[in-house]
Amino acid sequence: MALSATTRPDSTRPAKKRDDTRLALLFIAPALIGFLVFMVWPTLRGIYLSFTKFNLLTPPEFNGLDNYVRMVQDPVFWNSMRVTVYYVFVNIVLQTAIALVIAVMMQRLTRRTWLRGAVLTPYLVSNVVAAMVFLWILDYQLGIGNTVIAALGLDRIPFLSSDAWVIPTIAAINVWRHVGYTALLIFAGLQTIPETMYEAGRMDGASEPRMFRSITVPLLRPVLGLVLIITVVGSFQVFDTVAIATRGGPVDSSRVLQYYIYDVAFGRFQFGYASAMSVALLLVLVIITFVQYRVTRADSSDLN
């Protein structure tokens, strides 16, 4: 090759190859710089800060494992971990189940674009606005929700001010907002299942529920796996709805981990301890994502 390259009159080809690399780097650069500056560096710095006592205004003081020792002994931290997991469970189960039904209905029942678009509309509302609106709707005294309940002759429900109702309510608010988006992702997955599968199913006399169980769900597994990873990671980071609607109350029953971290950092200026809890959350998410990836085998499909 080397010989032929030197003997070849047109020797620009190898140079062109080097050009490609440079061009590629140029295209990657914006994303890479953003990734390094806004993702990698803050993560590393956050991990460093978790070993310090830091109030943002005076330089950080190294204090070893103090923050982690405190975290292990902090009952509020463990409670917020429990509350977060409870929230994620309710949120994900509801959201995935409803989104799957909506997606299947979008594919099997209607072809209308506007109807498919309408499903996505709650997602266009910002989290904060959604929380504010539901805060008013669900208000114990004045909310239209409770007014309707009272008009039906039932007892008013303290949706956001009782420890039993608060997490399911916040989970439901976020399901309302995110279900359309999740449905759309699943819908995209459904489009990859060949129509011939369903034709074959119909030939064998299978009912719609049976085809859903035996064709749709198994073939959707990789997409569903990825959707679950995205939604679970997002769900663990619930913050805005809690900050607006309950501020962690009543008592600690909606004090999710993100809100506790925020409170410790920006309310109490303990950025070292807040960073330590953030690192703990990072670890939890890494482990969960890894396990999910393996369990759902999201990297392989049964289609081939």
């Binding site: 500056v37 806004f38 993702m39 990698v40 560096w41 803050p42 993560t43 710095r45 956050g46 991990i47 800060l49 943002l56 990671v233 997002g234 980071q237 993100q258 971290i261 925020y262 950092a265 950025f271 807040a274 960073s275 953030s278 690192v279 959350l281 990072l282 998410l285």
Partner: peptide, 16 residues
């Protein structure tokens, strides 16, 4: 996405 949080908690605030 946790990285986003760390950013918010520590350095993003500073830089931004």
């Amino acid at each position: 996405m946790t990285r986003r949080l760390l950013a918010a908690a520590a350095a993003l605030t500073l830089t931004l």
